[in-house]
């Protein structure tokens, strides 16, 4: 079997990197005080997901394009979500002059 370009990189390396990226993004979502920073964290998480998907596709089932379709859709959704989310943040900023998610607590008891 030819080794090709991925000679020497076991699958789990990618998975660990993706996991790390995911967790970093997670920290950004949970621990940041700025809504835009939160969204940045979300984008990082989505990227991690993509890495996972493509890695699995490449190592496990490279012959089917199913995973790639999934990846494509993740791209699309990430873009749409980023657009809408940022629009919302801008609108909120205009009205309340703040992008602190902690201040947006109208849903409290």
């Amino acid at each position: 079997m030819e080794q090709g370009i991925l000679n020497g990189i076991p699958l789990h390396f990618f998975l660990i990197v993706a996991a790390g990226l995911f967790c970093i993004g997670l920290y950004g979502v949970l621990g940041r005080k700025n809504a835009i920073a939160m969204l940045m964290g979300v984008e990082l998480m989505l990227n991690a997901v993509n890495i996972n998907l493509i890695a699995f596709w490449r190592y496990v089932r490279p012959e089917t394009p199913a995973a790639l379709a999934f990846v494509a859709f993740v791209f699309v959704v990430a873009a749409a979500e980023a657009a809408v989310g940022l629009a919302l943040i801008i609108s909120v900023y205009r009205n309340t002059k703040s992008v602190d998610p902690e201040k947006l607590d109208q849903m409290k008891f």
Binding site: V29, L30, M38, E102, D105, M107, K108, F109
Partner: peptide, 17 residues
């Protein structure tokens, strides 16, 4: 119990996770 409903998104997310 009421205190749980802080309205803080990040708190909800964290607790869920």
């Amino acid at each position: 119990g009421r205190e749980l409903q802080t309205g803080q998104i990040q708190a909800y997310l964290l607790s869920g996770l």
